[in-house]
Design a protein around this nucleic acid. Structure first.
Lengths: 249, 249
DNA sequence: CGGTTACTTGATGCATATCAAAGAGGGTGG
DNA sequence: CCACCCTCTTTGATATGCATCAAGTAACCG
């Protein structure tokens, strides 16, 4: 498992500390923990933050790497995953703008999973130690982070239900529904949803094979629940039917 | 889904507030967030805490119930789960002494899962609102809670890998290994591990059927990796072999 | 425009589910 | 204290949803 050094082939984006108003104007601020901060606190956050760009399909970090970075995605899509020795892969999450990446518990010096970009990605990188310092001084921030973690725990339980007990059709229906709802949460349209990840990524997220994913999508298309559109987009023709399918009604 | 009123048929255990030294002497204190508190802060915690007992197989709360309670298990075992409309069940976790139950994000007024005791259970119950108050005034406590949540997120990723990509044998091996390690973490022996839950609970935790669980355990027994002992205990004869099996080597 | 990779579709196989029934405890009332 | 009953567990026989193996087709990139 080779770690590709982040941003290795690109000019380094200048740190935000040279642009203290950057965070105030940040488009994803209302989506994330930064919304918890008043303007003068945002400046403190900017100090420990660096804006970074990643190309598509770039490894951000590998499981076991020193967890010295934490990221807040500002654009693009990221996948997190775990591998078995023989190469079997489970994608544990897709992250989009506003999502937080790299949270590890205290006394957990290394990442419990790998992260790789799906598309080109822009992210705010925080130095773990400096962020911890900041957290200990600005409890509102830590409070928000606890909220983020709790929400993620709730989401992940849904995913366990999906992986342990749902059929292929229910998994795909749930997946599309989740993407639609999350897009809506980011203020994007809920209907034609973007599908930036490959079939193989979807398969590894849903605990299926690419073939089954492909067949099942065809089936949903044939049933008239969804339709495929240009640019890897999916239109949900019948949201109610999709929601029922997702829960096995 | 009928909610059985907690402690309905038992005398109410007196609140800890009448016994301010209870927490200081608490056996599970070093295992849990209470370890973060100095003695005088523990007294504050005792104030918002009530010691409660549950019988075996008692529903503590159902998914969707108002999340007005948070628990810290002091003895016994609890399972958390989600259900599909047709009754399919995914157990999302087993909790033992020192484990925290009922964490929901802010603005999440209801539980995202149900909780039911496996054995008789003793737990410290906190009123959600009063605990929130306390958290906002004692940040070390909130910091610990963030640590608890982060650790749980790491654990849950392992479980997703298991549910999405592991074979039945790998799942059972992983399960026994997890129980063994957690027991060790609580200061219990790592070798003869207790299996208080039924085969059907194990099946719903591992995304299998009771029959497959039973067959696979038999197989592990035959291979000489484990052996069954009285009182629902399992002895791990070959820890290294089990660890290899768990990761599909 | 050629080559490569991703996606779709088809044929077959297998791990695990489902259906069925026989032990094994474990608690209760006679 | 024993006998019965009920539930849990184990074992067996069969079925099936999804994986695997195998092409063909479409999209993409250089």
């Amino acid at each position: 498992m080779v770690r590709i050094e982040a941003v290795s082939s690109q000019p380094r984006t200048p740190s935000c500390s040279g642009d203290p108003e950057h965070c105030e104007r940040c488009a994803v601020r209302p989506l994330t923990i930064c919304a918890a901060l008043r303007d003068h606190e945002l400046h403190l956050l900017s100090r420990v933050m660096t804006k970074r760009k990643f190309a598509a399909a770039e490894v951000m970090f590998d499981e076991g790497d020193a967890a010295d970075s934490v990221y807040n995605i500002t654009s693009g899509a990221v996948k997190t995953y775990k591998l078995l020795p023989d190469g079997r892969r489970q994608i544990t999450g897709f992250l989009f703008e506003g999502d937080f990446l790299g949270l590890t518990g205290p006394g957990r010096p290394s990442f419990a999973f790998s992260a790789e970009t799906v598309t080109a990605v822009e992210a705010c990188r925080f130095d773990r130690r400096r962020l911890d310092d900041l957290l200990s001084r600005h409890h509102e921030l830590e409070h928000r982070l606890l909220g983020v973690a709790s929400n993620e725990l709730a989401t992940v339980q849904d995913q366990m239900l999906l992986l342990g007990r749902k059929t292929a059709k229910e998994r795909l229906a749930s997946f599309f529904l989740q993407l639609s709802r999350r897009a809506a949460g980011r203020g994007e349209p809920e209907d034609p949803i973007a599908l930036p990840m490959s079939r193989s990524d979807i398969a590894d997220y849903l605990g299926l094979t690419t073939e089954t994913v492909s067949r099942t999508i065809t089936q949903l298309k044939t049933t008239g629940v969804i339709s495929l559109m240009p640019e890897n987009r999916v239109s949900i023709s019948d949201m109610a039917a999709l929601a029922e399918l997702a829960d096995g009604f």
